[in-house]
Design a protein around this nucleic acid. Structure first.
Length: 574
RNA sequence: CGGGGCGUAGCGUAGUGGCUAGCGCGCCUGCUUUGGGAGCAGGAGAUCGGGAGUUCGAAUCUCCCCGCCCCGACCA
């Protein structure tokens, strides 16, 4: 039983000055966590209990699914990460250190390498597969900008699993099992979430989905179709547009368009020349980018920006993507800034990528590659041909659902889980092979599956807290029942302790506010701030032989006879 | 890394060159109080983020450094 008289806890009356989002503010105020450095937090008793509760739900669901728990050190030698090139690729986000002899070590940001090597060390036959193993462990990433308390920390707790299969069909099965286990986890954790299509990005591999907890303070943006339920991270949103019909479009016509380096100025001059009817959506924006040192032209409709993050994810394998700077234009004098069009791309030798909205057969107003000149009736397929199509334009609410063409909505969310079909990338570079039934060596195919455990604590707090405090789902609250004893006589305190003992004997976790010196008001405020689901007040009502039972979530209060208290509480918890 | 804000006791804050750095919460002692963050009295607690400088005198002005928060870039 957690007794407030001795619990290592100090709640704060004021919001901490350095916390803005609800989860951060309340977890600090209610005495769950304290900041140690940017993105690094210590956990006080209430926080540890809550974190363990979340861990245990996840652990039980993993075990239930037949996955086996292992544990790696956070401190790892450089070699394994050298083999997959991630010692370099991970860049400044990797915490690197040296031992006394100058040997390189790192603090693990994720453990694909170590799991691959562990399986390589133990197994060598297809008969051993499939295998799924996991750990719940502290990860370290030197984030450029830690944020929002424990939502994005530099040290955080993660559950990471890895599956090992002999073939693609097996991987699909393992992937699905993890997906199912994740659904069970997040349901039990009482979370509101969506499973959305994602791009696998730097992890490589083919299929990937994210579990997103909708929340205004989230960092991820995703689209959701209100009709068919299609959901995707904006990066993975698919644009479907019909092929244009260019048959009636006149021949390309070049125009004098003095002083029109921007889309707005271009639309204005077109409307004054041709009596209106033109909008930014009729123009073609030709954005010059540099991808890992190579220049690249990207075509998007003039009324849309290029979403660099989305583009980079869809290009795949690009480490640095940035827009052209003055120096880049200086190196490419054939590119007339403000008047670039794709018509002469072949001559400049720069690769042209088009957003799918710039579909074959569509006609555009575009730069004419001469200062103060534009062209209209520039038709894709007739006047220019992109080298490739790639999702590049920003996604907006109201865009068409790729499944059913309904207008999608856009929302923000916290990423709480991510599942990947990794494929053979890690197994290949680290040499994880097994013999198949013909005695031939086969490279194993892998999946990787993560849940942000400490982040889930914050995400649940975000989704469930209110103005007066935290408000945990039953399964993860520090205690299911919070008993407050009030008054100055011994009776309510003895009675409260007695109820607590009975509940604990029945397997219900209890927090007891047995402080003699705190006023009733303080105890009520603390109980609401701490956020256990059931609050039992033992005080005034005792005169009639009753105790008061409150439900934190709804605020409902009722008086029940002392003798019925335990069964009434059980009913509420069910 | 770019932009913005901030750093004074455990927490929240006042204090733009002048006396012993002020207030609220929390903490300690005593008395009173005990159903919505009680009252009175007394008390402890501060290298004013650090260093250098200007000045008769610096929390306050100047320079350098450090740290924290927010937006963006970045981020399985």
């Amino acid at each position: 039983m957690l007794k407030m008289s001795t619990l290592f806890l100090r709640t704060l009356r004021d919001d901490p000055a350095d916390a803005e989002v609800a989860s951060h503010r309340l977890l600090v105020r209610a005495g769950y966590i304290r900041r140690i450095a940017a993105g690094i937090y210590s956990w006080l008793p209430l926080g540890v209990i809550t974190l363990r509760n979340v861990e245990n739900v996840i652990r039980q669901e993993m075990d239930q699914a037949g996955f086996q728990e292992v544990h790696f050190p956070a401190l790892l030698p450089r070699e394994a990460y050298e083999a997959t090139n991630r010692w370099e690729e991970y860049g400044p986000s990797l915490f690197r250190l040296q031992d006394r002899r100058g040997a390189d070590y790192l603090l693990g940001p994720t453990h694909e390498e170590m799991f691959t090597l562990m399986v390589k060390g133990e197994y060598s036959s297809y008969k051993d597969l499939p295998l799924s193993i996991y750990q719940i462990q502290t990860k370290y990433r030197d984030e450029a900008r830690p944020r929002s308390g424990i939502i994005r920390g530099r040290e955080f707790v993660m559950k990471d699993s890895y599956s090992f299969d002999i073939d693609d069909a097996g991987l699909e099965v393992s992937y699905q099992k993890h997906r199912d286990a994740y659904v069970s986890c997040f349901n039990r954790l009482g979370m509101n979430y969506n499973i959305v299509k994602a791009v696998s990005g730097a992890m490589g591999g083919s299929k990937s989905e994210e579990f997103l907890a909708p929340c205004p303070t989230g960092e991820d943006t995703y689209v959701l179709c209100p009709k068919c339920g299609f959901a995707a991270n904006v990066e993975a949103m698919i644009t479907k547009v019909p092929v244009g019909d260019p048959s009636g479009v006149p021949a390309l016509e070049e125009l004098d368009t003095p002083n029109t380096p921007t889309i707005d100025s271009l639309v204005e001059i077109m409307n004054s020349k041709f009596g209106g009817g033109y909008t930014a959506a009729d123009t073609l924006k030709n954005i010059m980018l540099v991808a890992d040192g190579t220049p690249l032209a990207v075509l998007v409709p003039g009324d849309r920006e290029v979403d660099l993050k989305r583009l980079q994810e869809n290009l795949g394998g690009i480490h640095e993507l940035r827009v052209f700077e003055e120096a880049d234009f200086a190196q490419h004098p054939s590119l007339v800034k403000g008047y670039i069009g794709p018509q002469d791309a072949a001559r400049s030798g720069i690769k042209v990528l088009a957003d799918p909205r710039v579909a074959p057969g569509t006609s555009w107003i575009s730069g004419a590659n001469k200062k103060d000149r534009h062209a209209r009736f520039v038709v894709n397929g007739r006047d220019f041909t992109p080298d490739a199509y790639v999702e590049a334009a920003e996604v907006r609410a109201g865009d068409s659902c790729p499944e059913c063409s309904t207008e999608v909505v856009i929302d923000r969310a916290i990423e709480i889980g991510h599942i990947f079909q990794l494929g053979r990338k890690y197994a290949q570079s680290l040499g994880l092979t097994v013999l198949d039934h013909n005695g031939k060596s086969q490279t194993v195919t892998m999946g990787s599956y993560g849940i942000g455990v400490s982040r889930a604590v914050a995400a649940i707090a975000e989704q469930t807290s209110d103005e007066i405090g935290l408000n945990w789902p039953v399964e993860i609250a520090p205690a299911k029942v919070h008993i407050v004893a009030t008054g100055k006589e011994d009776l309510p305190f003895d009675t409260a302790l007695d109820i607590g003992n009975k509940l604990e004997a029945a397997g219900v976790t209890v927090m007891l506010d047995d402080r003699r010196d705190a006023s009733a008001g303080v105890k009520f405020k603390d109980a609401e701030l701490i956020g256990n689901p059931i609050i039992v007040v033992v005080g005034k009502a005792l005169a009639e032989g009753n105790v008061e039972v409150r439900v934190r979530k709804t605020g409902d209060k009722s008086e029940v006879a002392l003798a019925d208290a335990v069964s009434a509480i059980f009913k509420l918890l069910a």
